[in-house]
Amino acid sequence: MNPFEYTRAASRHEAATMAAGGATVIAGGTNLLDLMKLEVMTPERLVDISRLDMDDIETTADGGLRIGAMVRNSDLAAHEIVRSTYPVLSRALLAGASGQLRNKASTGGNLLQRTRCYYFYDTAMPCNKREPGSGCQAIGGATRLHAIFGASDHCIATHPSDMAVALQALDAKVEIENATGDIRTVELESFYRLPGNTPHIETELKPGDLITAVIIPPAKGSRQTYRKVRDRASYAFALVSVAGVIEMSDGKIAHASLAFGGVAHKPWRNAEIEQMLLGEAPSQDLFRRVADTLLRNAEAQGDNAFKIKLLHRTLCAVLTELTEG
């Protein structure tokens, strides 16, 4: 690990000011320290926000939930309101990492974890995300984990978070405070960027921006699930995953939000398929047409071609599960 200067921030303002000056923020550290050991990331200064007062989960005036950026993944998954009203979020968190990691990983840090692309992790390889302009060795290489949606000629990496996929299906917003103390909220949908020709710029965060909370509106559907398909039964990243939030009324689908993990540079969402489901009675034929539409523009990258069929089947299975009974 390269040497660095360590500061424990006494306030959000201090943390944001240091970050604006080039320091790297550390919260749980479970991904950052891993990357620092491998020298994929080599910050010269670390500012520790783990003791800042950002670990509350509160209900909002409109009946939603405000989750502090330092709330640990395990606490969020076990929170009573999350379990009863946003089970898709509990399920997604519990499908990720291990008990030890969830105890350390924070809400903000989970959003900002880096891709697990093998080439990003291997400093002997070129990578446009790690070293802009150096090239992408994943294209034409080993691509089992890689994107089928929204990839570019510069990067085909996927976002690894399960939590973010559930938050996307719940229409979450990210609350951000900058060094001058201004607070803004950004829809998660526009928080993450597609790789384009700047895959090293992954989010809308500017230098000095600090994630302070994630805000989720009241749940729009009571039927929720998160289905994750992976190479082993536990403690592995998603090959594909589906977060679903459905509401039924008189045998028809009254609300549908769907988000997909393991398939793009960000949690993937498709407004057209959600619209196709609205007002319809559930049927296998409908689900197949919806999945066909979702995957119409999917592009395989060699090894990951199986993801197209796998996501089709997983989506149909999730829709069946959530509309039954």
Binding site: Y6, R8, I26, G29, T30, L33, D34, D48, S50, S74, G99, Q100, L101, N103, K104
Partner: peptide, 15 residues
């Protein structure tokens, strides 16, 4: 009271 991976945590963060 919580189990964690001690290899993925800096000692100085545990003051």
């Amino acid at each position: 009271g919580r189990r964690i991976n001690s290899c993925l945590s800096l000692a100085c963060m545990h003051d």
